[in-house]
Computed example of a mutant assay.
Amino acid sequence: MHISAKADYAARALLELACDPSRPLTCEAIASSQEIPFRFLKSVVGELRRAGLVRSQRGCEGGYWLGRPAGEISLLDVVRAVDGEVITLRGEPLAGLGYPGPAGRLPGVWRQVEADATALLGALTLASMLPAGPAARQARSDAA
């Protein structure tokens, strides 16, 4: 299995934004906090913006916010926003995949792996991924 750097960076950036949705963050701040290459993150955030997962505002008071509440953004939304498909085989979707002879059942296995991954990613929201409790909230406010 392969998780793309784009999907990983996108999820990390969105989780950073979800920690304090009341204030915007710049790409520079997110990149620094998550140790993500700035230029790559800028491209990823552009894709997230086009997908409606983040919104932006220019200027000295600007930056990025979540486009929807953290409880309404699943990891599946994130992966699809930056990668399109959850799992591909040599860059192609699994839908029409078929093999002859003894390998004939293999495409069904790959499709089941994709279905299971899709179900898991769809069930996990950004809100569910954030640390909970007073200590975590204090750590987030101390970091601000």
Rank of each mutant, 00 (worst) to 15 (best):
G52E: 08
L53F: 11
V54P: 05
V54R: 09
R55N: 07
R55H: 13
S56L: 05
S56W: 10
Q57V: 03
G59H: 15
G59C: 12
C60F: 13
E61A: 09
G62L: 11
G63D: 11
W65Y: 11
W65A: 13
L66I: 08
L66T: 07
L66V: 05
L66Y: 13
G67M: 10
G67I: 13
R68C: 07
R68F: 12
P69L: 08
P69D: 10
P69I: 09
A70R: 14
A70K: 15
A70G: 12
A70P: 13
G71W: 15
E72A: 14
E72Y: 15
E72N: 15
S74K: 14
S74G: 07
L75C: 14
L75W: 15
V78C: 04
V78Y: 12
V79S: 06
V79A: 15
V79H: 12
V79L: 11
R80D: 04
A81L: 13
A81C: 05
A81F: 06
D83E: 02
G84H: 00
E85D: 13
V86M: 03
V86K: 02
V86G: 02
T88K: 00
L89W: 08
L89T: 03
R90F: 10
R90G: 06
G91I: 04
G91M: 04
G91P: 09
G91D: 00
E92C: 00
E92P: 00
E92T: 00
E92R: 03
P93Q: 11
P93I: 02
L94H: 01
L94S: 08
L94W: 06
L94A: 08
A95V: 08
A95W: 00
A95F: 04
G96I: 04
G96Y: 01
G96S: 11
G96P: 02
L97Y: 02
L97P: 01
L97V: 03
G98T: 03
P100K: 03
P100D: 05
P100M: 06
P102N: 09
P102V: 12
A103S: 01
R105Q: 08
L106H: 02
P107N: 01
W110I: 02
R111A: 00
V113Q: 10
V113R: 09
E114K: 03
E114L: 03
E114T: 01
A115Y: 00
A115V: 04
A115K: 13
A115D: 10
D116E: 15
D116C: 11
D116S: 11
A117E: 11
A117G: 04
A117N: 07
A117P: 06
T118K: 06
T118H: 01
A119I: 05
A119C: 05
L120E: 12
L120D: 08
L120I: 14
L121R: 14
L121F: 14
L121S: 10
L121M: 15
